[in-house]
C-alpha cells in the first residue's frame, strides 16, 4: 500500500508516493532524480550513499524513506553554490582525492560531517572517520590529504 512521504531535500520541500519498503536512497535517486548519491553495496558498508539527515551523515541505503519523514536531507547536490565548489569539494579536486568518482559523493558528505564535529582532524582521525567509506581507486592517500586541506579551508 503506497504511503506519502514528505521531507525537505536540499532546501526544497518534497513529497512522494512510495511503497513503505522504499529506501531513502531510492527516494532520492528515483523519485527526486538526484543521482549524485550512489549505491555500492547491500550491507551498509561502502558509504557511497552517505547523505546528511538533519545535519548528520547517515547511510541512505539503510534508512527507509519513511524514517526521514519531516527531516532536512542534504545530498551532494546541495554543496556547491552558484556553480562554485564547496571548500571540501575544491580540496578533493586540488589534491586528486578522486579517480572514478563513484565513491566520491559519499566520501565528501562524510568528510564535511567530520569537519563539523572536528574542525582540525589529524591524519589518524581522518582515517578512522572514513571507516564507513570504501574507495577502490585512490588507496585513500589523496583522500586523506584532501580532507586535511578541506578542513583547513572550511576553518578559514
Amino acid at each position: 500500500m503506497p504511503v506519502t512521504v514528505s521531507m525537505t531535500v536540499n532546501g526544497k520541500a518534497v513529497s512522494g508516493e512510495v511503497e513503505p519498503r522504499t529506501l531513502l536512497v531510492q527516494f532520492i535517486r528515483e523519485n527526486l532524480k538526484l543521482t549524485g548519491t550512489h549505491v555500492g553495496c547491500d550491507t551498509s558498508q561502502c558509504g557511497a550513499c552517505v547523505v546528511h539527515i538533519d545535519g548528520t551523515s547517515v547511510k541512505s541505503c539503510t534508512v527507509l524513506a519513511m524514517q526521514a519523514e519531516g527531516s532536512e536531507v542534504n545530498t551532494i547536490e546541495s554543496l556547491a553554490t552558484n556553480d562554485e565548489l564547496h571548500p571540501m569539494q575544491a580540496a578533493f579536486r586540488e589534491n586528486h582525492g578522486l579517480q572514478c568518482g563513484f565513491c566520491t559523493p559519499g566520501m565528501v558528505m562524510s568528510a564535511v560531517d567530520l569537519v563539523k564535529e572536528n574542525p582540525d582532524p589529524s591524519e589518524q582521525e581522518i582515517r578512522e572517520w572514513l571507516e564507513g567509506n570504501i574507495c577502490r581507486c585512490t588507496g585513500y592517500h589523496n583522500i586523506v590529504k584532501s580532507i586535511k586541506a578541506g578542513a583547513e579551508a572550511m576553518r578559514s
Binding site: G47, S57, V58, K59, E131, G132, N133
Partner: peptide
C-alpha cells in the same frame, strides 16, 4: 561500533 554513519543511527 561500526562507523560514524552507523553510530549516527
Amino acid at each position: 561500533i561500526g562507523d560514524p554513519q552507523v553510530r549516527h543511527r
